[in-house]
């Protein structure tokens, strides 16, 4: 059944949505301040899960170029797909692959400084690798593919890259450890998309589950923010308890009403709170 598969294939999103709604519900429905913080935490955690789950990509590896793989990838791209990215349109994948091609080149050059650049240069004698922008130009100038969802048309662009590469009579660079994708904050999704496309060409995509490190890095940051928020929230709850003697929202409101409008209004508010409870 198509719709069943449709739902099942996106199970990570369902978990995310479920947790998010539970979290939000707790925040709004619970009067206890600590419970609110708990709800907020669940809500934030759902987002962490979402980010991490989109980092998992079937058939991806670290974004490293192989000249012929790229060539193949560019022609067989439409067949490739991401498990986690199933919701995305094929065109986006195509774009991501293109992006990967570009960003990897940038990365390798940037990552490892001039020495490495020299190495690359001598190895493949390819201007495009030196000048990410040139390559990008090439990518951009390619006509729109029949998928049409992205302006970044990979097949033709890939061809161009492939052509440039094939002008060099030397062997393409081997995936040396030195130019591996650095895990701290680079754009991996794109890179692995490119690679997964390459894999697709070889018919081996199901075999590998690759984890894009970037979302992890982002989420590490978000976790720090989340911990800080929780800490501030709980500290506030402690101070509120010191000041009011309670952390129940209804009672807090009643106490404020008494302070502001005198006893009667406060009692009414308390009664209202009681009856509501």
């Amino acid at each position: 059944m198509d719709w069943f598969d449709f739902i099942l294939a996106r199970y990570n999103y369902w978990i995310f949505i479920l947790l998010m709604m539970i979290g939000l519900y707790i925040v709004f429905a619970r009067g206890n301040l600590v419970k609110k913080i708990v709800g907020l935490n669940i809500f934030q955690t759902s987002v962490f899960i979402y980010y991490i789950s989109i980092g998992k990509i079937f058939g991806g590896t670290a974004p490293i170029y192989m000249g012929d793989e790229l060539d193949a990838a560019s022609h067989h791209e439409p067949e490739s797909g991401h498990g986690a990215d199933a919701g995305a349109h094929g065109g986006e994948t195509a774009h991501a692959a293109a992006e990967g091609a570009q960003s990897k080149i940038d990365n390798s050059a940037l990552d490892h400084g001039d020495d490495l650049k020299e190495t690359l240069h001598s190895k493949i004698d390819n201007n495009a690798l030196d000048h990410g922008n040139d390559l990008k130009e090439a990518l951009k100038s390619a006509p729109v593919s029949d998928e049409g969802a992205s302006l970044h048309d990979l097949p033709d662009a890939g061809e161009k890259i492939a052509n440039t590469l094939s002008h060099t009579d030397k062997t393409p660079p081997a995936p040396a450890p030195g130019i591996e994708f650095s895990p701290d904050g680079l754009h991996g999704a794109a890179g692995d998309a490119a690679h997964s496309a390459a894999e697709a060409a070889h018919g081996a995509m199901e075999a590998i589950v690759y984890t894009n490190p970037l979302p992890h890095v982002l989420i590490l940051t978000a976790i720090v923010v989340g911990v800080a928020t929780t800490a501030v929230g709980l500290a506030l709850a402690v101070r509120i308890r010191e000041a009011y003697g309670t952390i129940e929202e209804d009672e807090l409101e009643a106490a404020d009403d008494i302070a502001e409008f005198g006893h009667q209004a406060g009692v009414r508010a308390q009664q209202a709170a009681g009856s509501a409870a």
Partner: peptide
């Protein structure tokens, strides 16, 4: 996150 997923 959604934008990142769409664009990388």
């Amino acid at each position: 996150g959604l934008l990142y997923q769409a664009t990388g």
